[in-house]
Every structure is written in C-alpha cells, then in structure tokens.
Design a protein around this nucleic acid. Structure first.
Lengths: 167, 167
DNA sequence: CCGTATCCACAACGATACTG
DNA sequence: CAGTATCGTTGTGGATACGG
C-alpha cells in the first residue's frame, strides 16, 4: 500500500480516534457483537434465539443487543401476533446490513486459516449455487490486492468523486 | 440469507467455537490488533512506529504484536543494516495479508456510518486512481447482497472449487 | 531504538438467580 | 418469552518505570 504525500510522515493526520477502523471496533469489536450480527443475517430476530444460538448468556445478549440498537445496526420493533400480547423483534437496519462484507470477510479468513477443512459452512449465491467470496475491487471492476492500493487524504465533503478542478 | 435444510433448526451444527467468525474474533477481535494490522498494511515494520502511529502504549503493542506473530499473521524477521547490530522487523505473512478485505470492509463501513464526511482517508487503485470498494461476489462475477445468499453445510475436505468439470 | 515489568481501571463474558 | 441483577474471572489498555 502506498501513502500519498503528507501521509507518509504521519505528522499531518491524527493517529487516534479519527480512524474508521478504530471507531468501528469500538462498536462491533467484540466477539458477541459479531456473532449476534451473524445470527441477524441468518434471520434471527428474537432475544432468546439470539442468546441460545450464539451461545452466550442472556446478560451478555441483553447488553450487546442494546448497544447494537443504540448504535443503529439493529432496530427493536414491536409486532403482535393475533391474540398475543405485543412482542419485540430485532431487525437489521441498513447500517447493520452494510456490515455484512466485514463479517463475511472475517468468516472467509477464518475458514481458510483457522480450520483444516475450509470451515463448517459454505456461502453460495442462492440463484446459481455459485460460491461466494469477499473481495476488493476498484470502480472499473478489477480486483485489487494490497500492493495495488494507494491511500489519499479525503478532501472533506465528498465520499467519492475527487473533484480536481477547484482550489 | 437462506439456511439450507438441517441448518434451519440449528440442531445439527455447533453454535459454539466451530464458527469461523468466533475463532477469528478470538485472534483479531481487539481494537489494537486491527489497528496494528492497518499499520502493517500501510508499510510499518518497526516496533516503535507501530506503537506511536497506532497510539497505544509499548506494553500493549508488545503484547498484541506477540499474539499476532504467534497466530501467524506477522513474522518477526531479523535484518541488519551495515555496521548496525541485528534488529527485527514485523512483516505480514500471507495469513496477515489475507485479512485485508476484513479490515478494509470495517473501514469502509466506518467511513459511511461513523463520519459525516466519508472519513479521513480514501482508498484508490494505484494505477488508475479509481476508488476501491469491498464487495461480495459470486464466482460468476455478479455482486450479491444479503438476500441473494444461501448457507450450506460444508462437506469436509474441500475449501473451494466444487469441481464440476475440468478446464 | 526495541522492547519487558508492574500496577491499576474498566470492559467482556460466563454462571446463576430472579422478574413480568 | 424477554429480559435484569449480581458476582467472579479474565482481557484490554493506559501510565510509568526500567533493561538490552
């Protein structure tokens, strides 16, 4: 990975809490949070199911679930089956759904290096049954590796579109 | 995400430590480990640089670096500048490099949801300056989302390549 | 430069028990 | 079914001081 100009000496940018990785890890940087999200991706919505299928105590499930709701990855929404009292379910928000690549990348890595047999589960595209992989791609469609990457300072206000014109 | 047959009721597979996400989080599930890896991707190799640029104490850097070496993501290799005594540098192994998608996915997510301005840094393909994104793709090249995925039990012994035929 | 050793605070998690 | 409360253990990390 190459660092552009002022990044190289590190004097220009904060090493601290500005980093997105650092912020992300403050929110989902626990085993239980990641596993709860995994379960949410699998379709789980109920408290007890979360605790049981993840294999954590209710106390931990309660704390972590609450944090994930507060952070905005899950939403607690009421629903009512006919004749029953109101219950709540935990549903993924867009923010939660968008973490899927990170969770899958972790799983893919663990499958490869932390198992002898490629891991217990396999992910495929539903329609075609083709195996699925998390990868890094540039906008023009080519897959890029660590050595093909360059890091630049993001000029405030835009997420993409470098806008070289003004200044 | 759809769960295939026996997975649906969860009775068949361990919810515990078999899960690759769980195993992965045991190793790299700390803020400091992830940030050290980020630095390694940026090209950092020296102890002091790691500690300083990540913004953690030497004690923490020492502990975490040692774990990453033991786990196999980094290798501590000796080198000698002429006339100097032998020093050590921490270099990424294939195992460490292969975690890049996970780290980048986390960064990408943090850029989007944990900043107002798309985050402090931008990643581009070096050759073309095209923005880069982590995504989930099936083997036939299409990008797939959460609802397009199916999970199946991995029949032991194969990591990828279902081998439908030769080529 | 490249670390290790201590001490301390607090977060993460399991176990267990208890409420509506 | 959906949680909260409490306890004890270990992990994470900052501060500081020290050794090769």
């Amino acid at each position: 990975m190459k660092l552009e100009g002022p990044l190289a000496d590190r004097s220009a940018w904060e090493t601290g809490e500005h980093c997105s990785i650092s912020r992300a890890m403050r929110i989902v940087g626990t085993r239980s949070a990641m596993l709860l999200l995994r379960e949410a991706y699998y379709g789980t919505t109920r408290f007890d199911d979360f605790a049981q299928r993840v294999g954590i105590t209710e106390a931990v499930a309660s704390a972590r679930l609450k944090e994930l709701v507060e952070a905005g990855l899950l939403a607690k929404s009421p629903y009512r089956e006919p004749g029953q009292r109101t219950r709540y379910e935990y549903v993924l928000t867009d923010m939660g759904r968008d973490l899927l690549p990170a969770v899958l990348a972790l799983m893919q890595w663990g499958d490869k290096y932390l198992h002898d047999d490629g891991g217990p589960l396999q992910l495929v595209e539903d329609a075609t049954s083709a195996p699925v992989r998390v990868q890094i791609r540039s906008e023009d469609g080519t897959e890029v590796g660590l050595d093909d990457l360059r890091v630049r300072i993001n000029r405030h206000g835009k997420r993409d579109a470098p806008k070289p014109s003004a200044s």
